[in-house]
Computed example of a mutant assay.
Amino acid sequence: MTFQPFAPLPALAITAVLVLALFGWAAFRDLKSPATSRGEKITWGRRAAILVLTLFVATGPSVLEERSEVAYINLDVYFVVDRTGSMAAEDYDGNKPRLTGVRNDMTTLMADFSGARFSIISFDSTASRQMPLTTDTRALSGWITNLNQEITYYSAGSSLDRVREELSMALRQGATRNPDNQRIVYLFTDGENTTDTERLSFAPLAQYVDGGAVLGYGTSDGGRMKTYDPSGYGNSKEYITDWNSGDPAISVADANEITALGNELGVPSTLMDAPTDLSAYSDGFNPELITSEGRRLVTVPQLILWPFTAVIMGLLLWELTWQTRRAARKVG
């Protein structure tokens, strides 16, 4: 037999000591008299049995059982998505926004790694983990479908430093919790960096990365970007303006930055201005091969509560019957 406590052991132990101490004091107070009847002794014995069994159930008595289950795929895929305003630049596949390519490529990669776990980290003015590692592809598809650039009013320019720490944290947590899993990172960006400071290197993250790619979007000629305001108060058909010239701002993809990011992470990189076959960036990670066995035996604890709870219920009914008769005698 093993145990799966319903509360942390220290808290359970402290609670048990306090409850047993109070119970012992109450029992001693009622039973210390030499005139204590046999019925009262039986009553306190019954109550003691209820208390001990309840505390025992709280420890989660279990037996270990072997079960056959489908082995999970030990492959974690991280999608890191640039949502800054520049990703709305209309220089992908003609005059489509760069995010159009991102949506299509995320959908393709999700299908390529069917059965893997996926996580989404996005960054704009801030970085956040939009979705923890999950196999829920419906939720993933919903996020991809609704992917848009950040709200223009809150835009603070482009900086890859914003996502570095969030990605580092996610990868380190994944490596700690599932050290045998393989981790693949796909960074979707145009490489643009509008800050004056030199960005931090992504090289320290490479130790946690087993594959993936830096997928760049846009052209060296650049494209205009429409504003985005989901509230409906702004005009999302207007183009973002260059504050210096007053003309529509132009975002140019930074091919050198995309290459540098790939080198630092130890993964290939590419700059795309049209739909591209991504098979070269997913080869070698066949989820069916990464799963070593189709099924596996696992040992899981199975709670066995019903025998003890049945006894507790019987004792409680006995206590209720006794209390009812006692009250009736007092009334009579």
Rank of each mutant, 00 (worst) to 15 (best):
S158A: 01
E165I: 10
S168H: 11
M169T: 05
Q173N: 15
A175G: 12
A175T: 15
N178R: 14
D180A: 14
Q182T: 14
Q182M: 14
Q182V: 05
Q182R: 12
R183W: 08
I184H: 06
V185F: 09
T189W: 01
G191E: 00
G191F: 06
E192K: 03
T194F: 02
T197C: 00
E198T: 05
F202D: 15
P204T: 10
Q207S: 14
Y208I: 13
D210P: 11
G211Q: 12
A213D: 10
Y217P: 02
S220V: 02
D221L: 07
G222A: 10
G222P: 13
G223T: 03
T227F: 00
Y228S: 06
P230A: 08
P230Y: 10
G232R: 09
G232V: 06
S236G: 04
S236E: 14
T241K: 10
T241I: 12
N244Q: 14
S245N: 08
S245D: 12
D247T: 13
S251C: 05
S251R: 03
A255E: 06
A255K: 04
N256G: 10
I258L: 07
A260N: 13
N263I: 03
L265D: 06
G266K: 03
S269P: 07
A274I: 01
T276A: 06
S282E: 08
F285Y: 09
N286V: 11
N286M: 04
N286S: 15
P287V: 08
I290T: 09
G294W: 02
V298C: 06
V298N: 11
